[in-house]
Design a protein around this nucleic acid. Structure first.
Lengths: 339, 339
DNA sequence: GACGATCGTTGAGACGATTCAAAACCATCT
DNA sequence: AGATGGTTTTGAATCGTCTCAACGATCGTC
């Protein structure tokens, strides 16, 4: 019942603790007979390695922290999945922490992770370039920004959000839409600002009477999208935009639901393009066109960068990886049957 | 850069390590002057407590593991949220692990948590009564089952799924439906089996030509619900059930989407009742009626039970807490306008 | 000025695993 | 018998923190 230690295993197997440790870590240098005796003892005692002691001795734990903005957003779940896959290969654990967009929660998680002496921290920060992150890194815990570009001081993986915005807008313009809505969220969120900028850029360059209407919800959630949808439905049809770029898929889903609730058809009355291409997007009542991000790859690459830094901090060069998004066209922005 | 230890702090503050430890843990027994000197040293060195060493010394880490079936299901996110709230109050961390319904992944997570010497493990197991859980508990890591009733051997928190099924079915019968579908998933999942049983019980007792049709998807996901919806849409209208109870809200959403895609109206052509009452349910295109579970409370209670056991394993008595679900009626099962 | 009592501070073990230089063992050959 | 070389095994030191018995001041009291 009380968990047994290496010492008790040694006693039972009549060897020294050093030998037990060798059996555990380099079994090949231990003679087969001894090895077997030790394994028997381990089995008999139900010995479970104490990772805490290992970590103390090693000076670091075999764990990386991943702090995300919203665990309920499937986008981050997928990022986490990718991170876990790579971490697994390196016998490392990922602990998922949810800041929920709250700087206080984020800070508490960071403190805990630092105290746990994690290998490193992957984070989508609430505020870009929080000086606290620099302090943490300076104290020896590498930090990699996820879905957020860094300056040369550290590693980061991100997706070109401006390009994503351009892709979405260009697609809608090409489909003949002239009055386009950007359904955004808090402009303090960099991802939103960049996507908006991309859309604006293309619309401005289009000419031919193309114009952009912006509308922001307080949160990047389904509810936020619904709220914007309500406002849209209340507009006279003539003034209403004919297409919408959404800051993310959750909002796009909300918008879609609001349209359905008011008897407006998608894409006929309103074409919609989401962002993230979460699995829900393809499965929506009207399958959503969306800007796809390499979600798992983001996670995988983040861990790669982190482990590279950990393996040899001397040789390591900070890199800022930027991926290209691409557009997945589905029914929600199909060519307009009307007019 | 190299993180500094209590020893260096002591040196800089010209006190013993014991005193630094006292400042950290019982500041009131240290004289104000010394205390200040130590705090200054801590600040100057950017000292960060080493939780690993603390855990080793204490014999356990201030962490509980929470292993869930599916992080992308908002139900579990909410459970985790509740757990975290209580854990926070006790200066404890929750690490969220996703088994994704895979026994192998579950097992790996359990091993890791045990090696980390967590305070205890909260788990929604893939298979009920996995003997491995008993072994873990016997070795000294308390286990609490979540959303799954236990026998007297350990604590558990769960919701009466049979009752939930009865509530959903009774509601639909009361609305005049006679041909009712149960949209389920893998019958090996206890929650599904119980909900099904509850529905079946009430339908059987109803008489008046009430009948139950069962249809199972391979997964309790949106896609699973869609698949069932496709089959439904393909049926001649006369044979089609007029109402559906779903094993969870994800499936209900999928079903709803499939209906919309085929031009069938909810609730007129098909009334739908979901299960879990996740936030998406209320925000769906047609707001979903659903059986509500006290999600956060499940998490809160699980941690309470766990910490009670940890605090005094001697006095602790295992308890099996069962909550009552209740039905939330929304548009998706509104009275039928037709006939 | 001796004796306690009180209050702060100290320092020596733990905790459990890893590491590594040194010791022990064994077989073989001179 | 002794030297040689190779393989196994050992045991002490270490990681950073906490705990607790013991120690030293300081003060009041008689």
């Amino acid at each position: 019942m009380a968990t047994s230690s290496i010492k008790e295993v040694a006693q039972l197997a009549r060897v020294s603790v050093g030998t037990v440790s060798n059996v555990l870590n380099r079994p090949e240098i231990v003679s087969p007979a001894t090895r077997e005796r030790v394994f028997d003892a381990i089995r008999e005692l139900g010995f479970v390695r104490n990772e805490v002691a290992r970590s103390l001795r090693a000076g670091r734990s075999r764990t990386v922290g991943l702090v995300v903005l919203d665990v309920s957003n499937p986008f981050f779940v997928d990022v986490a999945h990718g991170a876990e896959a790579v971490a697994d290969e390196h016998d490392t654990m990922v602990v998922l922490c949810n800041s929920a967009g709250d700087p206080g929660r984020e800070r508490r998680h960071l403190d805990q992770l630092e105290q746990q002496r994690v290998l490193g921290i992957l984070i989508t920060p609430v505020r870009t370039d929080d000086p606290w992150l620099t302090k943490i890194a300076a104290r020896g815990t590498p930090v990699v920004l996820v879905d957020s570009p860094a300056t040369g001081l550290r590693c980061s993986v991100a997706v070109d959000d401006r390009l994503g915005g351009r892709l979405a807008a260009a697609h809608l313009l090409e489909r003949g839409h002239r009055r386009i809505l950007f359904a955004g969220g808090p402009p303090s969120v960099r991802q939103v600002a960049d996507r908006h900028a991309g859309v604006a850029e293309v619309v401005a360059a289009a000419g031919g009477g193309a114009e952009l209407v912006a509308c922001a919800a307080p949160e990047l959630t389904v509810a936020g999208g619904r709220a914007i949808g309500e406002r849209l439905a209340a507009m006279p049809a003539a003034e209403r935009p004919t297409a919408a770029c959404c800051a993310n898929d959750m909002m796009a889903l909300g918008l879609l639901q609001a349209m359905a609730a008011h008897g407006l058809r998608v894409p006929d009355d309103l074409a919609i393009v989401g962002y993230d291409d979460i699995d829900f997007a393809a499965a929506a009542a009207v399958p959503l066109s969306s800007v796809r991000q390499p979600r798992e790859l983001l996670g995988r690459t983040a861990v790669d960068l982190l482990l590279d830094e950990v393996a040899d901090p001397g040789r390591h060069r900070h890199r800022q990886v930027i991926f290209q998004p691409d557009l997945v066209v589905r029914e929600s922005s199909a060519p307009r049957r009307t007019s």
